[in-house]
């Protein structure tokens, strides 16, 4: 296993955001973590990348326990993240943003830069533009490109489809597949379950801070509960409309008081 999350608990103050999340990501996979607003997806990613301390449990990366390693050191061992809300440096140009990605490592990075520009020709066109003045889609590309510049072994993506037009979402997801084909493992957090399940190999469903389901992505696409809760069951119900109620139709789903 490249990345193993073992029963992690995370608290904001006294309130538990995650109680016992476990998941595994194997080398070369695309794994997705789907769930509604506030289910704990972002917290899980932040804990893996070290932005949030965990109160219990363990995170193993490449066989080593990294639970207590500082966030900026996890980058060097190969965990790259495109954060929630993209986290672009607005005052820096596109190139400067990308160069921040290799801040912590030494050596020649021109090849990595060329590769990112090849993957995102749009960024090459705008390389001297300030990050803050770009459109949402471009910023998302920049966030992913910047994470790639850290030369990650596993790429953590936090809702890359958020706030983007459907056509752009398609494009972003096909790029994610391309990145994976080139050998980077991807852990993808998404509310857009439909898209995420189509590109992923395996998937986890998170609800109120716990993993409630895990299976092959294709199997979840056909799962009646997942369809009802996250895929609109074929009708146009909003994806992940309201948090606890949506699971009401699924009595065996674990719930906490």
């Amino acid at each position: 296993m490249l990345l193993e999350v073992k029963d992690i608990h995370v608290h904001y103050g006294k309130i538990a955001a995650l109680h016992g999340v476990s998941l595994e990501v194997d080398e070369g996979e695309i794994v997705t973590l789907i769930g509604a607003n506030g289910a704990g997806k972002t917290t899980t990613l932040k804990t893996i990348s070290g932005l949030r301390p965990l109160s219990r449990g363990k995170i193993m990366f490449d066989g080593a326990d990294i639970s207590r390693v500082a966030g900026h050191k996890r980058v060097l061992s190969g965990i790259g993240q495109a954060p929630e809300g993209r986290g672009i440096f607005p005052g820096m140009t596109v190139t400067e943003n990308l160069m921040m990605g290799c801040y912590a490592r030494k050596g020649d990075v021109s090849r990595d830069l060329a590769q990112v520009f090849e993957l995102f020709p749009r960024l090459a066109e705008r390389k001297d533009q300030a990050g803050g003045t770009m459109s949402g889609g471009e910023q998302q590309m920049l966030a992913i490109g910047r994470a790639l510049m850290t030369n990650p072994r596993v790429l953590l993506l936090d809702e890359p489809s958020m706030g983007l037009a459907p056509k752009l979402i398609q494009q972003i997801f096909s790029i994610i597949q391309e990145i994976n084909r080139r050998g980077t493992t991807v852990l993808l957090v998404e509310q857009n379950a439909q898209q995420a399940l189509q590109v992923a190999h395996r998937a986890y469903v998170i609800e109120t801070g716990e993993i409630v389901k895990s299976a092959e992505a294709s199997a979840l696409l056909d799962d009646p509960e997942v369809r009802a809760a996250y895929l609109g069951g074929g009708a146009d119900r909003p994806v992940g409309g309201s948090e606890p109620e949506q699971a009401a139709g699924a009595p065996e789903e674990p719930r906490d008081g």
Binding site: K46, S49, G50, L51, G71, H72, K73, V75, L76, G80, Q81, P83, G87, I88, F89, M100, G101, Y103, A104, R105, R146, A147, T150
Partner: peptide, 8 residues
Amino acid sequence: DAAELMGV
């Protein structure tokens, strides 16, 4: 947060 994620 993004800075920390870049290894700063």
